[in-house]
């Protein structure tokens, strides 16, 4: 597959060529076809909007080149720096995103479910419901009720929700599954 060309617009990367846009989306539900509401629709005629996290992954995979306004190349290191600058726990998010993608899952934004990622086995609109993944620094102290809060939102979607704990120094990621328990 040819490398798609993306343009860095603020903290988004836009793939304006419709052919390249469809091709990336079909490959693994990367990004969001602009203005298209049904995620199942893979025959759209629209540009593709990628998050910086998705863009970095695709650049690392060699599937995407990112250019800035002056047509200069935006390197993976530069995208990484932007992620760190703009998103709290940005690096951790990227590590988990990459790990899930490398395991063959479709990871997408989980914001509308109150999670960091919504994770699909086949794809949005195809799977019955995504797994919801919350990303937490394994060395950071958390309030136990944050787990309950995560659970409250996630339970409306699936019986289980997942916390990915990440050690930034070692790169180790552990997935803890939580399931409602009635004693």
């Amino acid at each position: 597959m040819d490398q798609a060309i993306g343009r860095l617009i603020g903290i988004k990367v836009l793939v304006l060529d419709k052919e390249a846009s469809r091709s990336l989306y079909r490959r693994g539900f990367y990004g969001k076809p602009f203005g298209i509401r049904k995620p199942k629709d893979i025959d759209f005629e629209a540009p593709l909007e990628l998050s910086l996290i998705e863009a970095l992954y695709l650049v690392e995979k060699g599937l995407l080149r990112v250019l800035n306004n002056e047509k200069g190349e935006v390197t993976d290191a530069q995208i990484r720096a932007l992620i760190k600058k703009y998103f709290r726990k940005g690096n951790l998010l990227y590590m988990v995103y990459k790990d899930l993608r490398e395991r063959g899952f479709i990871a997408r934004s989980g914001l509308k479910f109150g999670a960091d990622f919504a994770v699909y086995e086949l794809g949005p609109g195809i799977d019955h419901a995504p797994f919801l993944v919350h990303v937490v620094d394994s060395n950071k102290k958390i309030d136990p009720v944050d787990i309950v809060r995560a659970g409250r939102l996630s339970h409306s979607v699936r019986k289980k929700f997942i916390i990915a704990t990440v050690d930034e120094n070692t790169g180790s990621i552990k997935y803890i599954a939580f399931k409602w328990f009635k004693p």
Binding site: R103, E121, F178, W180
Partner: peptide, 25 residues
């Protein structure tokens, strides 16, 4: 393994917990 979270009002919420290795079917 079960996690019991006691909130400020004394209510208890229980979760069965496990470490998983996400694998795609």
């Amino acid at each position: 393994t079960v996690l019991a979270v006691v909130d400020k009002h004394g209510d208890v919420t229980y979760y069965e917990t496990s470490i998983i290795e996400p694998l795609k079917k």
